[in-house]
Design a protein around this nucleic acid. Structure first.
Lengths: 205, 205, 205, 205
DNA sequence: GATGAATGAGGGTTCATTCAT
DNA sequence: AATGAATGAACCCTCATTCAT
């Protein structure tokens, strides 16, 4: 039902749950939270409108659940990329950015939803998801802090740098086209370099 | 009606036009295009629902008009900042970014609308506005090209750099709080430096 | 649209208001508050569903408004009947009961609604309407008190007598058929006598 | 699940039947037939929604079954009270009313349902239940007839008297509060006197 | 310009009921 | 007997828009 991005949520015990979540991401991503109707989601999930409510108690809780999945997947990708990287901050930053770009490109729609539709959640859900997102941002901030401590990131504005980098990467989702000039790998490389440059790391070559 | 940002659109000949446009930006910015109703706009503009249609033929045309005003204001700020700057690319880039940051901070809501709600326009209006926005982006790209030609911007990814910088600056609107730690001026300074670093300009101090 | 009872609410300035209120009483009376839909009301009022909301902000407020009209009409009938009666308690009680029976028979549906559907109001509206209803009940209680003081009502249970009488009269609405054996006048006479007997007034003939 | 009234229906062979019936009375009594959902009933009976349909084929049949139980209990109380009373009509009426008041006070919710929700039954079920209820009313009417024949009830409106008395007693359910000023016994005494007075029986003391 | 009334379409959600297990 | 998932119809209400004044 979503040709652009592979399904974000895998099958679980409850048969339709994954289908509903993926349909929700697609619908919310292409039409916006308020522009998409629960009927659109049901159509995408190939189930009935009322059956959605056997899985999620409201439209907004459905959005929250979808965003929780997206956040979890993003975080796990970034964290394992960092673990597999070298010990120095530049390598780690490079791999973290590459992983993030990979997620954005693969789950473009989910990224758009996570960026644009957070505001439509109940305050409690929004807070929980912001915390969730901040956990990913923390991984970046720790790398920045390490690089600054090591003297290899020389920006005087280290505090906001991680947020700025994450914002730039997420923004890719708003213009990227899989059939465009840049391939996934090149894009990842490019943004890794942007990130290191922004941090004022000396060029390594 | 919007305490955070000063009204974007000034009084014109038609008495209520500016009030409607400013109310529209406020409503669309805080609730999203589909989340805000024409009744919300009318309430914000302190006029009647049906009177909106004496000024704008549809909700979507109202959004288009509001965005045209925002774009025009942004562009004029950036262009005149560039004109007043020195002749070298880094100075120009610095002033362009500072002007843009200024607009984002002053018209935070309008920036959010321009970033998030463009998708809800009729295709024709969207195309026109994208063109409009690209005109502003062109100003940045010309500076980048000049800097690359002068050898002062050494990034190998000059093509996408302007877009990335503009995206990062626009993203400020999604988290900036006027009562936060960073003042307007510091923020402008910081983002100017981010931009030059990202372009891999050698530090001037 | 309501053949049984003449319309309770007369035309006012707003063209459709009376039609909507009368249709609401009919619909709520025949199908119950939860059994009747706003579409039913709209159909009865010969207007569109959505137009109902130009007059009443919700189904429950529509019920409240309808009941306010019914209560007002009932109270005014009872009060003027009492005023026109003689000075002694039995005459007053007789006329009050006769007036009430007249209202019940004429506005049978409205009486049913007032008896059965009060519970579906917002607490605030319900409280206001109960107060309203109690004002009518007060008229009866004052007559009871006068009769007791005069020694002409000899029941030892004067406190609850008014409520019991009103309940019995209202209950007429649940079985009365205009084409039945009892005419309006006979019914009024009969219930007046029930009331006086219940109050243990000595028979006057 | 219903603290006010003791459960009306006792355990039977089928484990959940009584729980469902009692939950139905509670739900229909507090929210009305159309206001209560089968889910509410299931929750009250602590079973699953779909299991309700193993016991009762539809919501309306469930209401019918619940009302049959209530009617049967009421009738048996009244009949055995009459049997235990003396032979004269006033004694019998007094005991019948006392028994009825006892039922209303003990099964207030069931009384409310029987009074207000009968209309929502299928015509066939409604007819059967009305007949059922009329059987109880017949007991009262026979007493009235006896009293009239004996010259002890002197009302000229004997025909409707039983219905009026029963209506007044049932109406107790709409205002009685167990923690109120009147105890069960006082209330029964009071309504017995109301009934005899209404029938124009000479006072016995 | 400006308004209040009007409307058809569609919104999210709940409903009684059924079915497979 | 018991359940969770499923469904189509219907619910109240709001929407963008139009029209008569």
């Amino acid at each position: 039902m979503n040709d652009r991005s592979p399904t974000l949520v895998a099958e679980t015990g409850r048969r339709n749950e994954a289908a509903i979540l993926n349909a929700a991401i697609h619908a919310f991503g292409t039409q916006g939270f308020n522009g998409a109707s629960m009927r659109d989601v049901a159509r995408g999930a190939e189930t009935s409108l009322s059956n959605l409510y056997n899985y999620f108690p409201s439209k907004s809780k459905l959005l929250a659940a979808a965003l929780r999945h997206a956040n979890a997947e993003l975080r796990s990708r970034v964290l394992s990329a960092v673990e597999l990287a070298g010990d120095d901050a530049p390598s780690r930053m490079r791999e973290a950015v590459r992983a993030h770009v990979g997620f954005v490109v693969e789950h473009q729609t989910a990224t758009l939803v996570a960026t644009n539709e957070l505001r439509y959640l109940d305050p409690g859900d929004r807070a929980a998801l912001v915390e969730d997102r901040d956990a990913t941002q923390d991984a970046f901030e720790r790398i920045v802090a390490q690089g600054v401590a090591d003297g290899v990131f020389r920006t005087p504005y280290a505090t906001d740098a991680a947020r700025t980098i994450l914002g730039a990467v997420a923004a890719i989702a708003s213009w990227y086209r899989p059939d465009g000039a840049l391939g996934r790998g090149q894009l990842a490389e490019q943004y890794a370099r942007y990130a290191l440059a922004l941090l004022e790391a000396p060029l390594t070559h």
